[in-house]
């Protein structure tokens, strides 16, 4: 079954066409890469698919739900790790994860369990008590992905997850992404040919 199916997805800002009639299909459990130079429309595509911006034409279906007419259902099934780090800087890693758990309505018990589980899976256990702003770039990206995974999404969007990271941090982060491969559908954007 297709997890994502885009049909003539288009985004225009006045006279500028950013995404022009995109058709794509991503099967469940697949890791799908959007490769392109800066300004190619990768982030805009992710923003449209994650209901952050409305398409000006066409539609896309995530697990059968339209991103135009059924955004509430779409939001229940997705997780997004934006291009910027998008973490709460003055909260610790644990607090960031528990905060996201709370927003998804998990019980106190489940919050603790979920936080411990994700910290273990993404290699964050040793920095749980550290303030997010004090983490290295690589750890901040891991935290960002962990926060996107809190809601137990079926589809995960990773926008330039390795941007600005050094070689080692990139390699570590790719280990994390490989770990998730096959378990959930992932769409990631990159402008590195070797990553795509």
């Amino acid at each position: 079954m297709d997890a994502i199916k885009a049909e003539h997805l288009t985004k225009k800002y006045k006279d500028l066409t950013v995404v022009d009639g995109l058709d794509l299909a991503v099967r469940e459990g697949e890791l799908f890469s959007l490769l392109g130079v800066n300004g190619a429309g990768k982030t805009t595509t992710i923003k449209m698919l994650s209901c952050l911006t409305k398409p000006t034409g066409g539609d896309a279906y995530l697990l059968g739900n339209s991103i135009v007419s059924n955004t509430a259902e779409v939001k229940k099934s997705i997780g997004v790790s934006p291009q910027e780090t998008a973490i709460a800087p003055n909260l610790t890693v644990r607090e960031n994860l528990e905060f996201m758990c709370g927003l998804h309505g998990f019980s106190r018990e489940k919050r603790k369990q979920k936080t411990a589980d994700l910290a273990e899976r993404l290699g964050l256990a040793q920095v749980l008590g550290k303030k997010a702003e004090k983490l290295s770039g690589g750890y901040q990206r891991r935290l960002s992905i962990a926060m996107a995974l809190i809601g137990e999404p079926k589809i995960l969007f990773l926008d330039e997850p390795t941007l600005g990271l050094d070689v080692l941090a990139r390699s570590d982060l790719w280990d994390v992404i490989r770990l998730l491969k096959g378990k959930i559908t992932m769409i990631l954007t990159t402008h590195y040919m070797e990553e795509a």
Partner: peptide, 17 residues
């Protein structure tokens, strides 16, 4: 403003808030 610029708000817009 920081939440907007760091895309933290963008992340939160994909939650049930």
């Amino acid at each position: 403003a920081k939440d907007r610029e760091s895309a933290f708000l963008q992340r939160l817009y994909t939650t049930p808030l």
